[in-house]
Design a protein around this nucleic acid. Structure first.
Lengths: 105, 105
DNA sequence: ACTCAATACTTCGTGATATGATGTATTACG
DNA sequence: CGTAATACATCATATCACGAAGTATTGAGT
């Protein structure tokens, strides 16, 4: 998929992946992959950004002798998802604009 | 609208604005504005990029004692729009993913 | 005559950001 | 015993939208 098109979806996809229950990096990638290809460096960059923006909180815990960082969504994170849904109307209007022009052919 | 969300739509909007008939910068902005706010510097940056990518051609002509640059879409530009339409299916799948999680509440 | 908005295009610097490359370390499997 | 999978981190790079600032003309209002 076109990189530019992905940009507006990545943050919300990550937030959606932890919306119902906390998760960790490796699992988030796997959950999102069926919908959107995403590299590890991208994911951890996004998680860091969302943490700085208080959209999620992090706790480190041991699992099978290995450390995992669990990410949990915050109210602000949930609000971000809602904002996305609102903006989707504008996106669809633009999509209609692009499609509409077909009729003139 | 969120900047990141816009990114994937800007190029295609500009190409759509010149799809049926050649147009010029100032008019393109006005045609797109109802759907998407866009500054002049952004538009001219995009037009330059699309020109470099051979998605459109340019000719300069006088109009009312003033110079105008008219932009005309190319086959590659039309192909870019078609690609966008194809990718839209993936976008909608992601949108469904974000919405779906609502059902679990 | 003067002013200001509208028309029309250009250039520059900045900040945001996705990603590949690279690295570290452990567990599980055959 | 080696390889894949798990798990996370960091850095350099390239792309890109945008505000700011500028140049120049036309036209309408007063």
């Amino acid at each position: 998929m076109d990189i530019q098109l992905k940009r507006g979806l990545l943050d919300v996809c990550v937030l959606t992946a932890i919306k119902n229950e906390e998760s960790y990096g490796y699992k988030i990638i796997k959950d999102i992959r069926p919908y959107l290809e995403m590299s590890e460096s991208t994911l951890y960059t996004i998680l860091k950004r969302l943490e700085n923006a208080n959209m999620l909180t992090v706790r480190t815990a041991e699992h099978g002798g290995r450390l995992r960082k669990y990410y949990k969504i915050t109210k602000a994170g949930l609000g971000r998802i809602e904002d996305f849904k609102d903006e989707w109307r504008e996106v669809m209007a633009i999509y209609q604009f692009v499609m509409k022009e077909d009729l003139n052919k």
